[in-house]
Simulated assay, not measured.
Amino acid sequence: MIPAHLNFAHLKRCVSILTVLEAKGVTTPLTKRGDQLFGPCPLHGGDNPNAFVISLSKNLWRCFTGCDAGGDVVELVRRLYGKNYRQTAAFLATLAATEPTSQTASSLQPLKKSFRPFTARLHLNASVPWLRQKRITPTTARRFEVGAYQGGGFLKECIAVRLHDLDGHPIGYAGRCLDPQKAKQCGKWKFPPRLPKNEILYNFHRIESCHRNGLVVVECPWGVMRLAQLNIPAVALLGIHLSAVQNDLLKKVSPVVLMLDGDRAGQEATVRIRSALEPYTKVYTITLPSGLDPDDLSDEALSSVTRHFLF
């Protein structure tokens, strides 16, 4: 029984089971089925993918093998860390108080009230022909947590790409539709409902501390991955519009190399974004031939055109 003098009710509302697992460094992939997540039990180990079950709506967990335990986030902390109730309260209070403090990160908060991040890790196949055609190696795909998704939902028949906020916290997946007809009707890319897409700078959290010599800005994740294979820092706008948050981040980088898609929309966006950034930093543009995207170029061409401005 939880002691009445400790206010766990508030802490249980503020801290999710997933937050506790992430704080412990538990990175075992979890599979989502409806409102539940399944995976190996972090308490007793093993590799049974159905041993540990989390109810997302109730914030409860249960192990069906090994330790045969279950409960709320309080009981998980006590068992996972071996803490007493007072220590558990202090630990949960620390997690509850952990909020983004930077100006750019805090600007996400109003949108996050209506957007519920999906933090579980999906099982993805990184070795698929579509990625090979993009010249993205399985090693790169695994690093960026990208691959074919075999389940249902809005990612069905898609190449899934894991997304993170500006602080590197996972917030869900985008999907590149593989069905040409569906892509033509509904668009190539699918995003979670109410995703604050215009306040995400894809891959920024991975290179934030190592872009002193500048970076390349592209439209979509494939260009980022191709450039990463060449050790060239890059971020993606996930579109052709530059938001205030993205502008605040990029104007602190020098130089910024814009290499958007070679279609009319990409060319017009290049002019618009360059105009927005030039008062604050040095900006170069790479204009691609009509119909070509950065990931359509060979490694030699990608390296040649970008390193000319960055190194």
Rank of each mutant, 00 (worst) to 15 (best):
H5R: 08
L6I: 15
L6A: 02
N7D: 11
L11A: 11
K12P: 02
K12I: 11
V15Y: 00
I17Y: 04
T19M: 10
T19I: 03
V20I: 08
G25F: 08
V26E: 15
T31W: 10
K32P: 05
G34M: 10
Q36K: 15
P40E: 06
C41R: 13
C41S: 14
L43R: 14
H44R: 08
G45T: 01
N48G: 07
P49V: 09
N50W: 13
I54C: 06
K58C: 02
F64T: 12
D68I: 15
G70Q: 06
G71D: 05
G71L: 10
G71W: 00
E75I: 06
V77F: 01
V77Y: 02
R79C: 08
Y81K: 07
Y81W: 12
G82F: 11
K83Y: 13
T88A: 01
A89E: 10
F91M: 01
T94W: 05
L95M: 07
A97I: 14
E99G: 02
P100R: 09
Q103E: 14
A105R: 12
S107K: 07
L108D: 06
L111D: 11
T119S: 08
A120R: 09
H123S: 05
S127L: 11
P129M: 09
L131S: 02
L131C: 02
P138E: 04
F144N: 08
V146C: 05
F154R: 11
E157M: 04
L163P: 09
H164I: 06
D167Y: 08
I171T: 06
Y173S: 01
C177A: 00
L178E: 03
A183M: 04
K188Y: 14
P192F: 03
P192E: 01
P193M: 05
R194H: 13
P196C: 00
K197L: 11
I207Y: 00
R212K: 13
N213F: 07
N213L: 06
V218R: 03
P221H: 01
N231W: 09
I232E: 04
P233S: 10
A236C: 12
L237K: 01
S243T: 14
S243V: 14
V245S: 08
V245T: 15
L249K: 03
L250T: 02
S254K: 14
P255E: 11
V256H: 03
L260P: 02
L260M: 08
G262H: 03
Q267K: 11
Q267Y: 07
E268I: 10
E268T: 12
A269Q: 05
Y280F: 12
V283A: 02
T287S: 10
T287V: 08
L292W: 05
D293N: 15
P294N: 10
D296W: 04
D299M: 13
A301E: 13
S304R: 13
V305L: 03
R307A: 04
L310S: 00
L310Y: 11
